[in-house]
Nucleic acid binder design. Structure first.
Lengths: 224, 224
DNA sequence: GGCGTTGGTGTATATAATACACTCAATATG
DNA sequence: CATATTGAGTGTATTATATACACCAACGCC
């Protein structure tokens, strides 16, 4: 038993993961539908309690896998939310994480205890349980900030992608159009991506060159 | 009793506050000397467990006040540390905060349970308990990053200060010398500071104009 | 083979960042 | 009280970076 076992009414620790993707030309977040009668009609960010000797990230991965079927994604810590009243049923402190995925790489399936799992555009979220709306908003803000000085966008794209796809990701997250020539100049200067053999024909037009990220770990980069 | 009361061996929540100041031309952190025999010779970042219905920031302020005598400082969340082995005596998840203070504004006094409280230069820390060395390192890194695009530096300075003092704060945190004319041009362009009446004579030279921060809340700013 | 569609490229201009040296006003000194 | 010393305060020229902008290429489709 912990040395710290009995002095206080303790809070419980949970993790929540805000999973973003770009789908239908929109930034979307992954939500699960709550089944408990107290939360009828509400959705939530996938997450749950941290077990005894389990690390925070481990717990985040476990709940993500159990509740959405997702595995093998990168997560990074967003912020910890600890308002004593954030959960009406007890004192839960939640460590929130962000993940970015290419939505077509993951088959979604949730467990019995939830009513479904689905993508929702950031502009157009359903009713969210607890303080999850605040969490998602903060995650979107952080994403928007970090895309300008890190290679965080890599999570959203498949291993091989075109410059136009990459540019669309930036445009959607930043919410503004970017000049094609300037974008290409800058992104190639950073050296975070690299051309790879092969072209892709995706319609009645000239085929596009393919690129990949040079490093797939997070790193800070001067950009845009 | 919490609905979440009995399912797991729960972790306990703590907060730790890395307090920075600039003193003797160096970036320094506030540490308390541990008294418990298990930690003889070790120092630690001021912090402690969060009580039942207490908010995270409230707990951080309370421990800071109890263990160092400091009150009325700004804190902002750094990151949450939750490695199951970070505390050898039990599972403690720590939410770490950063605070920046003007050291001469606070009289230091610690409680009976600690052996003392003192400032230590970042380069030259004593042995730190738990994972507090990692916490302090990360706090310093974050500070260095944020000083470039926020008004975070305001906490380090007295209400009224000279441009040279402000520049020294930037130089010490960034670890590089800055051109005086360019610094003044840029910092005044941002409009985060404003000249105030009165000059200060501090030696055998022309007296300096005084400035103050326009807003004393955190804000993002384009800078340096 | 002509049309529609997206891929791919360079240059000129404007803005921002950097490098750089002297005078000013106070105190200290002989 | 004349002179030296010290940090305060100021502007411009140069370089680097960011922005604005238009046409041809390669494919599919009819």
């Amino acid at each position: 038993m912990s040395k710290y076992g009995r002095k206080y009414t303790h809070a419980v620790i949970a993790t929540d993961v805000v999973v973003f993707t770009i789908k239908d030309e929109k930034l979307q977040a992954l939500l699960i539908k709550m089944k408990k009668p107290e939360f009828r009609g509400y959705w939530a960010v996938p997450g749950g309690l941290v077990k005894g000797e389990e690390g925070l990230e481990t717990a985040a991965f476990r709940h993500l896998s159990e509740k959405t079927g997702m595995r093998g994604v990168y997560i990074e810590q967003l912020q910890t939310f600890g308002d004593p009243k954030r959960d009406p049923f007890g004192r839960v402190v939640s460590v929130a994480y962000i993940a970015l995925v290419s939505w077509d790489k993951h088959e979604l399936k949730t467990s019995e205890q939830y009513g479904g799992v689905a993508w929702f555009p950031i502009a157009g979220l359903p009713k969210l349980a607890y303080d999850h709306e605040e969490i998602v908003r903060m995650a979107a803000t952080r994403l928007k900030a970090k895309i300008e000085y890190t290679n965080i966008v890599r999570g959203l794209l498949p291993r091989r992608f075109t410059l136009t796809e990459l540019q669309r990701a930036y445009e959607i997250i930043l919410g503004k159009v970017i000049d094609k020539r300037n974008f290409r100049k800058k992104i190639l200067e950073t050296k975070i991506i690299k051309e790879v053999k092969g072209k892709i024909s995706s319609g009645a037009h000239r085929p596009a060159r393919m690129y990949r990220f040079v490093v797939d770990k997070p790193q800070a980069v001067e950009m845009l």
